[in-house]
Design a protein around this nucleic acid. Structure first.
Lengths: 129, 129
DNA sequence: AGTATAGTTGAATAGTTGCTCAAGTGTCAA
DNA sequence: TTGACACTTGAGCAACTATTCAACTATACT
């Protein structure tokens, strides 16, 4: 018996129609898309990069300087951010300048920063790094 | 020479004051806090759970039925979501009912869902799972 | 030409994550 | 009490991730 079949059969606590309705609302595909977007924002380095770029346009080396990490590490992250279309790269001479593509992301990001700063000024429940 | 020292020294493209200013704006601690919050939302299963709970209050087994995964898997995820204070658990008899704690998260989540559905209806650039 | 600078890339690696499985706890009903 | 049910927990593992290092390309300067 597949999980799919179990899902339809084994519901005993909510009525089946509600579960059936939820199963159609919560489709896997958009869940993956949403998770992918959040995944990009789920790393302190990328968060810092986006934070910095929300203040100024910066090149790869400057980002490394601002964050205090290697240029290679920045470059790897920029590749990811570019792939996910969160930043745009513009080459000028031998430098590559990055800026945020999307104002929507800016808002989501700002909202979350505010949320974190308001709701838990001192407690921190996340994992160790 | 530490990365910290490099950071102050090696800046050649932006003026040093700007980088110094950015270095104070982009502090590691809140970057980690923001990333931690996003990390919770960066998994398709947890996204689906939050999506389902934004529609109805559900117990562990129902969530398993709705998502089509094992109760154990759900329970593991609920522990995380509880730790991060995104959901609240309420035990009634032998069932544990979950609901979303925070309306702020609801908004961030809804924003992002809308963003994903609007901005990239068909393309998908994320990793395979 | 030659050299230095800015950035990219691929492999390797240490650490993390999400799930499964098996064993456990607590609750209800016969 | 016995059994079934709802859920939790810990160990183990396969997959993924962020960084480092070394080698590379491309541009600029002399």
């Amino acid at each position: 018996m597949t999980l799919e079949e179990r899902a339809v059969r084994d519901v005993q606590h909510v009525d089946r129609r509600q579960v059936a309705a939820l199963r159609s609302v919560v489709d896997r595909e958009s869940a993956v898309a949403v998770a992918d977007l959040f995944r990009v924002l789920a790393d302190p380095t990328r968060v810092s990069i986006i934070h910095a770029l929300s203040v100024a346009e910066l090149c790869n080396g400057d980002l490394a300087a601002v964050l205090g990490i290697s240029e290679s590490a920045v470059s790897h992250q920029m590749r990811e951010l570019r792939l996910m279309k969160l930043v745009t790269a513009e080459k000028r001479g031998r430098m590559v300048y990055y800026r945020l593509t999307d104002t929507h992301i800016r808002h989501i990001f700002a909202d979350t920063l505010r949320h974190v700063q308001e709701s838990s000024p001192n407690q921190h429940v996340g994992r160790l790094r």
